[in-house]
Amino acid sequence: MILINENTKVIVQGITGSQGRFHTQQMLEYGTKIVGGTTPGKGGQEVCGVPVFNTVKEAKEKTGATCSLIYIPPAFAADGILEAIDAEMELVVCITEGVPVLDMMRVKNYLIGKKTRLIGPNCPGIISPGASKTGILPGFICTPGKVGVIGRSGTLTYEAVHQLSALGIGQSTAVGIGGDPIRGSGFIDMLELFEKDPDTLAVVMIGEIGGTGEEEAAEWIRDNMTKPVVAFISGKTAPKGKRMGHAGAIISGGKGTQQSKAEAMKNAGIPVVPTPDKIGETLVEAIKKAGIYEQCLAK
């Protein structure tokens, strides 16, 4: 597994809000080691039995957490990320949807040379099935196993995980990197981790229209990846110039079309899933071809 495991200590920024509270409960039930939370001005309180602090720095010092999970409203989310970077959290996962793009521009540039890895914003988070989850992914559709999953969109990532589980294929870690034009981590960052991870034998990536992340990932896979990868790209029928829900899912200036992304994948020798119901089947074909099907079956 990558990014998080059963020992990862997590704090929740914005833990006293309704979202923060609800998901803290869900994550504790899943087995995530939530050791605290923050809301400025509410230090000293408790949520779901874990202590609340005023600042991330204090929460980190008192709990030894290495991962911070953000459920702060969009207007303040970027400040929350900056605070977590300043407190030198190793991993920051920002769930918040609707963060202004210029705020993220500042965050992304502040990250350069820092110790923090950021996932999101506008993402469903991370799950290492059976070990830990940081975010909002539903735990019960996942099965522990050997296939890594990376997606830009939440529910489509769930769909992929669900199809894999239904075919008896377990997952090492599933990561939603988010649907915004500027995000902390991209496909390549995650592919790099999966390539290095001994528990991951193959990877499914779920892309969509907008940006050039999928094209760049295709080249990277061709040059660096030894494990089989299959890709699905949604938005074949999306009209030009319209924002399809995600701020990042927009075809602008003739760039970022599904066709160009699928083409890049094919050129790099990566099997492209033809229709969204065939994500699991395409992966099974690829791992059979690589001779690792038996190893990928969930026990």
Binding site: S153, S234, T237, M244, G245, P276
Partner: peptide
């Protein structure tokens, strides 16, 4: 549909 990616994928499969 719930979710932007799934909503786009649903459009794609309708067309398919």
């Amino acid at each position: 549909v719930n979710g932007a990616g799934l909503a786009m994928a649903t459009m794609d499969i309708i067309k398919h």
